[in-house]
Design a protein around this nucleic acid. Structure first.
Length: 280
DNA sequence: AAACATGACAACCGCGAGAGA
DNA sequence: CTCTCTCGCGGTTGTCATGTT
């Protein structure tokens, strides 16, 4: 019967988002949440498909996102999780607060993959490349598995305990003396110790945790469609002492650039003016 | 300075899962 | 149970920035 396209190809804008579009989407979601993504562009006055809106929001506009390169510690976690989960980027991202699956996927493809290959590690199997060529009858444990019971476990524990904390930065700060290269070393090596069977108990526990859903906090204002969140409240959150996201995020700057402090942008009047059908 | 190569990341596409009618 | 719809995921492509020749 065929799948209905997610949106009409005609009349739907594609390509990079403009600041104006971002502003519309942000103001709409902050004040209304997202009911169903399919309806968002229409209600927000955007000539985009809902899918595009969702992607833009989750990967770029969401206020709890960290920006910038993954830290060494985060990279390490990604590698370890990838060894266990494979390309399940969303699961991996769920364990890295403030990071998106797309971001991690991109980072993997552009950085980590090459790094592992350079170190002689198959980025798919996480086994040594030369070992792989010599014999396929090797240990079923991945190369980085052993690491995961040591360094990575520490990181993942911290993540679990404080999902909103910027643990990676703390880890880095605590280990500031280590040069950038050291991250490479920790990845590869576990070195001699990495190719050993790790405790299956630890493995199971970690995998179990990995597969758990992150408990929703439930207080994200942009998730509350009916809430009609006051943007002033939101901005006070953003500027307050208890930032739910990294205060240095570019998003905040963008937010200010968009002039969202201006209530005229968020009280629905702007949206209504651009889309007469949308009323709240 | 121009052309080309490479890197980085935003965005798109197609598919599958799950929910609801 | 089947069908339809929406959402989310993972793979891939496109575009811009930066580096190199």
């Amino acid at each position: 019967m065929g799948r209905q396209p997610c949106c009409d190809k005609l009349g739907v804008k594609r390509g990079p988002w403009t600041a104006e579009e971002d502003r519309k989407l942000i103001s709409f979601i902050l004040s209304n949440g997202h009911c169903c993504w399919r309806a968002v562009p229409k209600l927000a006055g955007l000539l985009r498909c809902g899918k595009s809106c969702r992607l833009r929001w989750t990967n770029y506009l969401r206020p709890d996102l960290k920006r910038g390169l993954l830290t060494d510690a985060e990279e390490q976690v990604v590698i370890d999780l990838h060894a266990k989960l494979g390309n399940r980027w969303s699961k991996i991202a769920a364990k890295l607060p403030g990071r998106t699956d797309n971001e991690i996927k991109n980072h993997w493809n552009t950085h980590i993959k090459k790094k592992l290959i350079k170190m002689g590690i198959d980025p798919v199997t996480h086994e040594p490349l030369d070992q792989k060529t010599r014999s396929t009858a090797t240990t079923s444990q991945s190369v980085v598995t052993a690491d995961s019971t040591t360094k990575s476990d520490e990181a993942t524990k911290q993540l679990q305990q404080s999902p909103q904390s910027n643990f990676a930065r703390d880890v880095l700060a605590a280990d500031d003396s280590s040069p950038t290269e050291s991250s490479t070393n920790t990845i590869s090596t576990g070195g001699s110790s990495s190719i050993s069977s790790s405790s299956s108990h630890d493995q199971d526990a970690l995998v179990k945790w990995l597969l758990e859903e992150d408990p929703p906090t439930g207080d994200e204002p942009w998730l509350n469609f009916a809430g009609g969140v006051d943007v002033d409240e939101f901005s006070s959150i953003a500027g307050g002492p208890e930032l739910p996201w990294d205060g240095a995020t570019d998003w905040l700057l963008d937010y200010q650039d968009f002039g969202l402090g201006d209530s005229s942008l968020v009280d629905g009047s702007m949206i209504n003016s651009s889309n007469g059908a949308a009323t709240f």
